[in-house]
Design a protein around this nucleic acid. Structure first.
Length: 120
DNA sequence: ACAGTGACAAGTC
DNA sequence: AGACTTGCCACTG
């Protein structure tokens, strides 16, 4: 076992993902891959989808703010899940056209100016 | 052990 | 824009 690479339990990964998803501000959306990256799990976009599906409803996780990298909703247009997601997003002002969102308008990008220490 | 699956992504055509 | 391919990794039978 690589003792220099701390073993991360599956539960810890799940918790990291939930945290990041909670951090998405209302009115913006992020991609599965982006969530995975921010959670320190590059390349685990599919894991994010799985975890979202397993999250208990009572925790009020804003799962609907997570979409594909293309801006498409992850669910087929017209399916109940897609309709629900669309409705929740529109409630916070996100425009959903044909099962798709314009990421250049509504995509969430963690504030780089803060990370780089830039002032306004 | 191995093949199939999945709320994905990036590249190519 | 849409279809296909390959890479990805955890899970399941």
């Amino acid at each position: 076992m690589n003792s220099h690479q701390p073993m991360k339990s599956q539960q810890q990964r799940v918790n990291r993902i939930w945290q990041v998803v909670q951090a998405i501000p209302a009115g913006r959306v992020a991609s599965y891959g982006q969530i995975a990256d921010l959670a320190g799990l590059p390349g685990r976009a599919r894991l994010v989808g799985k975890v979202l599906g397993q999250a208990p409803k009572q925790m009020r996780l804003p799962w609907f703010r997570v979409v594909r990298a293309s801006g498409q909703l992850a669910f087929a247009a017209g399916r109940a899940q897609a309709q629900e997601q669309k409705g929740l997003l529109q409630q916070e002002g996100v425009v959903v056209l044909g099962n798709r969102i314009k990421l250049d308008k509504f995509g969430w990008q963690p504030d780089l100016s803060e990370i780089l220490g830039l002032e306004f």
